[in-house]
């Protein structure tokens, strides 16, 4: 991507929320992140409704056999370049499901993950830090 595009991308990361079978706790924290209290629009981040508009996918939940094809499809539908940011301890280490027959393992086996944000659920500040770190790597 050119310099101008990169400048724009770093200043307006539009996020799309992919709930890949999470327990909803991280999802609620992501919604919290978008409330006026944290005001991520200061950094240009906006929640968008379509993966076509997204620059960052916020993925939550244990990746399992049912959710894997869905997550992959959403990733393929997203206009590139796009960052995958995994939110929550489930995405980092499968939590209590680590020996489950259904858990198909870490996200970076299938997707180029830009950042993991641990926590059950992570605080909104931690998510902002994760997004900032993922963007500053570009």
């Amino acid at each position: 991507m050119s310099k101008l595009g990169l400048w724009g991308l770093k200043r307006s990361p539009w996020v799309y929320h992919v709930a890949a079978a999470s327990c909803n706790n991280c999802d609620i924290e992501i919604l919290e992140l978008l409330t006026p209290r944290y005001d991520v629009e200061r950094f240009g981040a906006v929640l968008v409704g379509s993966p076509r508009h997204a620059d960052a996918l916020l993925v939550t939940g244990v990746l399992n056999r049912k959710s894997l094809p869905r997550v992959m499809e959403v990733y393929e539908q997203t206009a590139k370049p796009c960052l995958v940011i995994c939110i929550g301890s489930c995405t980092c280490g499968n939590q209590v499901f680590r020996n489950s027959y259904n858990a198909v393992g870490p996200y970076d086996k299938y997707l180029p993950v830009a950042a993991y944000v641990p926590g059950c659920p992570p605080k909104p500040e931690a998510m902002i830090l994760g997004i900032v770190k993922a963007l500053s790597k570009l």
């Binding site: 991507m1 101008l4 595009g5 400048w7 200043r11 307006s12 200061r42 240009g44 620059d55 206009a79």
Partner: peptide, 25 residues
């Protein structure tokens, strides 16, 4: 109105350049 601070001045331009230089599906 929503008691927030809001985006910086160059925000619409950043959005525009980013979208123009992204992949079009």
């Amino acid at each position: 109105v929503q008691w927030r601070k809001g985006p910086p001045f160059l925000q619409p331009f950043a959005d525009l350049f980013k979208l123009l230089l992204k992949q079009t599906v």
